[in-house]
């Protein structure tokens, strides 16, 4: 049976892991290669890098990071953050990313999803959806970290990007992100049921049970988390052991 995936997410700025990673015995917690390698050893199924580099001068640094990680860590690598054009997608894939995540650019110009998937294949194109609840059973797509409304209904948008050629959806609840209260399971389930491509749940993980809930109640195909792993509270392995104990198929 296909395993549900656990994906640690690292914020990277100008080539360094930010928001801190607190593993014991890590020589350089800011080094993306070392952190990625550690997650691989723990049994992470994929790794996601979110490039939050502010200065456009430093934008290309992520390419070097991706090259270095891809040379040494042999699990799938997704990179997102500031991806605007098909050229951006290509450069990241050529550097060694397996998938590229498009967020704001997809909202501004949905054609970029079609163009990118047409050029490099759907399997390489993840569309990130940041959603906030606006009414019972209703969520709206936001951009810029939840600041900008788009007027798009999250469920309709998910179906639209699937039809445009997205291979996967990274779904973040902006209501839950950073709260440690768990995923928005209703949102996750609504989106996962609406599309036939895999959905990664994100935003709000505070415990290992939250990860399992994302799969069992949210029907997510994969779960993404950052701080719960970064600060050494839990390893990916512990997460998988708990998920297995709850009857979820995992790679251990």
């Amino acid at each position: 049976m296909l395993a549900k995936r656990i994906i640690p997410c690292l914020d990277v700025s100008a080539g360094r892991v930010v928001k801190g990673v607190n593993f014991v015995e890590l020589r350089d917690a800011g080094d993306p290669v070392e952190v990625a390698r550690r997650y691989d050893e723990q049994g992470a199924d994929e790794i996601t890098f979110l490039d939050i580099t502010a200065s456009s001068d430093d934008r290309n640094i992520i390419l070097h990071v991706v090259e270095q990680v891809a040379e040494q860590v042999f699990i799938p690598l997704t990179v997102g953050g500031g991806v605007r054009t098909v050229d951006d997608v290509r450069r990241l894939l050529n550097a060694g990313a397996d998938k590229v995540s498009i967020n704001t650019a997809a909202v501004n110009n949905p054609q970029v999803v079609a163009d990118a998937s047409g050029k490099v294949g759907s399997q390489c194109i993840v569309v990130a959806i940041d959603a906030k609840q606006v009414a019972p059973g209703k969520w709206e797509v936001f951009t810029h970290g939840g600041r900008n409304r788009t007027g798009l209904d999250a469920i309709e948008w998910a179906r639209r990007i699937e039809s445009l050629g997205a291979g996967e959806i990274l779904l973040t609840s902006m209501d839950r992100d950073g709260t440690k209260n768990g995923f928005d399971l209703e949102l996750t389930r609504a989106v996962s049921d609406a599309v036939s491509i895999p959905v990664i749940a994100s935003g709000g993980v505070g415990s290992l049970d939250h990860l399992a809930d994302g799969v069992t109640k949210g029907r997510a195909d994969a779960v993404l988390a950052a701080s719960i792993f970064h600060f050494g509270d839990h390893t990916v392995r512990e997460a998988k052991e708990l998920m297995r104990a709850r009857g979820i198929e995992v790679r251990l």
């Binding site: 549900k4 759907s122 399997q123 291979g167 959905v199 029907r219 790679r251």
Partner: peptide
């Protein structure tokens, strides 16, 4: 087996 939909692409560790 549990009645849920299997997604395509088949993506992940099997």
């Amino acid at each position: 087996a549990d009645g849920s939909r299997l997604k395509v692409p088949h993506m992940g560790w099997n």
